[in-house]
């Protein structure tokens, strides 16, 4: 019997495709997310917008809080560890979460290395801003990628930039001849074998989701049309005026991302979206998307 292999890890990501993964901070929010049609929840103590407001070091959440959420819902539960903090990841694996997010939203614990994700039975999702970063994470064992947005802003511009960057680099790579792959691997700082795979298949070897700054159904539809296979929503649901309604609308928008007639109906009368914080007003050193190496 085979357990904890990359096929089982990406297999769960396959099941999450076309869905929405929502940040929740307590069992009540988790229930609202599940009832609204979320296909998974991300359990954390503070949504990114609050981490940004409060400052300080952001760490893995209290396992008892995550456990409360695992008991409250039947859908998969994910939780975040700090970049490079393999001890936090070990604790989350022991707890039995369904996916671990090695996340730039928390304060990085290692400024050179990421977690060796092959060493874990629990699958990992990691963020990336470009193809090289995505392939380094996959090389370390990530079973799902999410292109990074600027978390906690409600500003979609970074998510769009990074999703476009990854898809553009994949397209370029697939036009190269075999003789050019090694130089491209060097330029990207990515493992040659993975560069070869992407060049031949024209897509990442693991599912590619998008995250960061999603605040409306239209934002979610935009990312899906740009090639994301599912969407993470952080602060966008529970910082909106009517979370249950906004959550359900974003779920529908992912399903009907290419159907403007349905999107129009979905977008009507939702109440206010999160206020948001334009990404360009944030000091460069306070931006989260740049974390990760």
């Amino acid at each position: 019997m085979e357990t904890g292999t990359i096929r089982l890890k990406t297999g769960l990501a396959e099941m999450l495709k076309g869905g929405v993964i929502m940040d929740v901070v307590n069992p009540e929010q988790a229930k609202i997310a599940e009832d609204a049609g979320a296909s998974a929840v991300m359990a954390l103590e503070r949504v990114p917008a609050d981490i940004r407001r409060d400052g300080g070091v952001a760490r893995m959440s209290d396992p008892s809080m995550i456990e409360g959420i695992m008991k409250a819902v039947t859908i998969p539960v994910m939780a975040k560890c700090r970049i490079g903090h393999f001890a936090e990841a070990q604790i989350l694996q022991e707890l039995g979460v369904d996916y671990i997010d090695e996340s730039e939203v928390l304060t990085p614990a290692d400024d050179t290395h990421h977690v060796d994700k092959h060493a874990f039975k629990t699958p990992f999702v990691c963020g990336a801003t470009n193809l090289g970063e995505a392939l380094r994470r996959i090389g370390e064992g990530a079973a799902m990628m999410r292109t990074k947005g600027e978390a906690g802003t409600g500003d979609i511009v970074e998510a769009v930039r990074h999703l476009r960057s990854v898809t553009r680099e994949i397209k370029l790579l697939s036009t190269l001849s075999e003789a050019e792959w090694m130089a491209e691997a060097k330029r990207l700082g990515a493992p040659y074998e993975l560069v070869r795979l992407v060049a031949k298949e024209g897509r990442l070897p693991v599912p590619n989701f998008a995250a960061g700054g999603v605040a409306t159904p239209a934002d979610a539809a935009l990312l899906m049309q740009l090639g994301a296979e599912a969407v993470f929503v952080g602060s966008g649901v529970f910082k909106s005026e009517n979370p249950a309604r906004m959550a359900q609308a974003i779920v529908k928008a992912v399903t009907f991302a290419r159907n403007p007639e349905e999107l129009l109906k979905i977008s009507k009368g939702l109440g206010g979206a999160m206020a948001g914080l334009p990404r360009d007003t944030i000091q460069p050193e306070a931006r989260l998307a740049g974390r990760g190496w």
Partner: peptide
């Protein structure tokens, strides 16, 4: 069967009417 850590792949004998038994991959995810 439990959560994702308990997901597994196991070979299964598949008996389809009118066909010989075939061994197929059973991918069980949550």
């Amino acid at each position: 069967y439990g959560r994702q850590n308990e997901s597994f792949i196991e070979m299964l004998p598949l008996r389809l009417p009118g066909r010989e038994t075939a061994l197929v991959e059973g991918v069980f995810i949550r």
